[in-house]
Design a protein around this nucleic acid. Structure first.
Lengths: 209, 209, 209, 209
DNA sequence: GATGAATGAGAGTTCATTCAT
DNA sequence: CATGAATGAACTCTCATTCAT
C-alpha cells in the first residue's frame, strides 16, 4: 500500500465522518423544530439523518453532546452574522445593523425554530460555549465603546440585556411591533453607551437611532 | 342539615383544600431545589407533601399546572417585593432599590434555588401569567417615566433587559462583581429612561447612580 | 371511614402487593430457565408475570434487586431442605442425607434450571446474603463436629468445597456416576471431620458411608 | 517466486499473526481487570491492543472465542505452576506446595484480577478446555494417591472441592486468615486421600500438614 | 375525597458484529 | 489482511397519569 493511497483513504473516511456529523446536526435542528424541545430525542434524530442510532452515538457520546454541538453551531452562525454586520457598517452607526441581524435571526425565524431557541440557549450557557461568546462580546464591546474598554460587568449587562429582550420576544406571547422593538433596542444600546441621541421622551418610536 | 352547618363544613373543606394546595406548592419548591429541574417529579412532590400522588392530581390536573402555580407564586412574591421597594423610595431614586430587590431574589438565592429559576421562568412566560406581569410593568413604567407613558415596546425592552441580565447572571458561570453589576443595571435603567447621570464613560463602576 | 375498613383495605393492598412480588420472582425463574442467564431481561420477566414493566420496577429498584430476591429464595429453600434433612436424621448419619438433598436440588434439576444456578450463585455471594448462609453453616458446623466448634476457616472450607463440587457437577460437562459422586462427597465430609470410616483406599465407591 | 521465499513469507506472516494474537489476549486481560467482567468489550480490547476491531475479529470469530483463549492461557499457567510445585516436592509432602501455588494465584492476585476470575472460570468450564484439566487432574490424582488410581468421581470431587474453596475465598467477602485457610485446605486433601495426620480435632489450625 | 398499585410508551444508551474501502 | 464507520436489536429504567378500592 502506498502512502498516497493510505492518505487518500484516510481523507475519504474523515470526509465521510464529517458529512455524517453535519447531517446529524442538521437532522437535530429539524427534529427540534418538528417535535419541539420536549419531544426531541436521539432516535428521531438518527432516523431523520438516515443513519442508525449507533452511528449517532459514535459521534456524540450522549444527547447533551449533540445538543451542545447544535447550540455551538447556532451561536457561531449568529456571531458571524453579527460580526459581518458590525464590520460592514461605519463606526457610529453600528448599533442598528447589529440589532437588525439579531432580530432577523430570532424574530424572523419560523415559529417552530423559535420554539427551539430556549433549549439551545440553555446549552449555550455552559462554560465551554461561553468562552467564545465572551471573547466576542469583549471585542465587540471594545469597538462599540469607541476604544474605551467596557468593564466585564458592562459587557455582560449589554449583551445579556439585548439577548434577554429578543429571547423574550420569541418565547413570550406578545403583541409588539417589530419596528418599534428594533428602535427601542437600538436606543437601549446607544443610551447605555452614552452615544445615543438627545435626551428626549422615551417610547416614541421613530428617528432616534 | 342546616345551611349554616353546610356552610361551615364547606368552608372547612375549602380551608383544608387550600392548605393542601399550599403544602403541595411548598413541597414542589423543595423538590425542585433538592432534585433539580430535570429530576423534578410529581411523585416526589406528593411524597414530600405527605399526600398521595392521587391527591396531587386532584388539585393539579397535570404536572404543568403544578409548575404554573409555583411559577405564579414565585413571580407574585417578586412583584410584591419590587412594588414595596418602589413605593418605599422617593421618585427619582427608585431604580436602585428595585434593582437591589431583584438582585437579592436572584443573586442571593442559594445555588439550588438558582438552579430552579430557569424552569420556573419558562412557566412564567405563558399567556395567563404574563398578564399580571404586564399589568405590573405597565404601572411601573408609568411611574418610572415620570408620567410619560412608556410604549408597550419600551416597557417590554426595559423589563426583559433587566430580567435577561439577572437570569444570565444566575445561570451562566461567570466571575462578576455584584456591586458593579448592580451599578451597571441601575445605569442601564436610568440612561434608557433618559434620567441618568452625565454622558460619561461607561463601565467605570462607582458613584453613578 | 371506620378503622376496620381502613385496616381491611390496607391488608388487601398488602396482600395484592405480596402476590405481585411472588409472581414476579416466579416469572424470573421461568425466564431465567427459558432464555438463559445471558438473555435474562426485566421486560421478559414482567411480561411473563402478566404485569407491566413499571410494576416490576415498583418492587425491584433494578435488575440486580430482582436477581438478589430470586437468589435469596433459592438459597433459603435449599437451606431449609438441608436443615430438615439434618434434623430428621440421627447424629452420626447426617452427612449422607444432607448430601442427598443438595444433589437432589442441583443434580436432579432440569438442565435449564441448572443453567440458571451459576448466575444465582453469583448473587448469593454478596455480603447481605452471605450472612444467613454463614449463620447456617456455623450452626451446621457445630453439630456436625459433635459439639466441637469449627473454626471459621474450617466451616468455610467444608461448605465451599461441597458447593464447589456440586456446582461443577452441574455446570461442567462430565460423565460421572451420580451414586459414586454422592459417596465421594459423603466421604469428603466425614474424613474432613475426622469421623469417617477406616483409612482405606479412596475412589472405590461402595459401602463406605 | 521461489518456494523458499514463499515459505519465509508464510512463516513471517504466521509469526506476525501469533504476535497479534498474543497482544490481543494480553489486552484482553488488561481490559478485563480495568473495566471488570460486566464492561469487558471487544472494542476496548482491540483499542488497547493497538489494532482495529476488524483485526480482532480476524483472529477471534467472536467474543467467546477471545474469552476462551484467555481462559485457556490462564488455566494453562496455573496448571504449569501446579505441575512444577508438584514435581519439585517429595512424595508425601506435595499437598502443601500445591495448595500454596493455588492460593498464590488466587488469593495473592490484585483485587481487579480477582474480579476477573469468575468470568474466566466460566469459560474454563467448557468441553474443550476441560479435557486438559481432566488429563491433568487424572495424572495428578494418580500420583497423589500413591499409585492408587483415583476414580473419575474422586478426582472430580478433590479438584472441584479445592477450586470451589479458593474461588469462594476470592469472590465472597470474608474475613479469613490466609494461613489457616491454607492449613485447612491441606488438611482437606490429606484426609480425603487418607494420608493425613491423626484423627484429631478439626479447625485448630497448626502443625497438621 | 384520598389512596397508591399499576400502567406503558418511550427514553437514552450499549456493544457484538459486519463489510465496503 | 487491516480498517473503523456503520449497524440495530436489545437493554434497563423513568415517570406522568389512571382508576379500582
Amino acid at each position: 500500500m502506498s502512502k498516497a493511497f493510505e492518505f487518500t483513504r484516510k481523507k475519504t473516511k474523515q470526509r465521510r465522518a464529517a458529512v455524517t456529523v453535519a447531517t446529524l446536526i442538521e437532522a437535530g435542528f429539524q427534529i427540534l423544530e418538528r417535535d419541539g424541545p420536549e419531544r426531541f430525542g436521539t432516535t428521531a434524530v438518527a432516523e431523520r439523518a438516515g443513519v442508525s442510532i449507533g452511528t449517532l452515538y459514535q459521534y456524540f457520546g450522549n444527547k447533551d453532546e449533540l445538543l451542545k454541538a447544535m447550540a455551538r453551531q447556532e451561536v457561531s452562525e449568529l456571531l458571524q452574522g453579527v460580526a459581518r454586520a458590525f464590520e460592514a457598517s461605519p463606526q457610529g452607526s453600528r448599533a442598528r445593523p447589529v440589532v437588525r441581524i439579531i432580530l432577523r435571526t430570532f424574530w424572523d425565524a419560523p415559529p417552530d425554530r423559535q420554539a427551539a431557541f430556549p433549549l439551545l440557549l440553555r446549552y449555550v450557557a455552559r462554560a465551554d460555549l461561553m468562552r467564545e461568546v465572551k471573547a466576542f462580546t469583549a471585542g465587540l464591546g471594545r469597538d462599540l465603546a469607541l476604544r474605551q474598554s467596557l468593564s466585564d460587568e458592562a459587557a455582560f449587562v449589554l449583551t445579556r440585556a439585548v439577548l434577554g429582550v429578543v429571547s423574550a420576544a420569541v418565547s413570550e406571547p406578545h403583541n409588539l411591533d417589530r419596528q418599534k422593538l428594533e428602535d427601542e433596542l437600538v436606543h437601549l444600546i446607544l443610551r447605555y453607551l452614552n452615544l445615543g441621541g438627545a435626551p428626549q421622551a422615551v417610547g416614541k418610536a421613530g428617528a432616534r437611532a
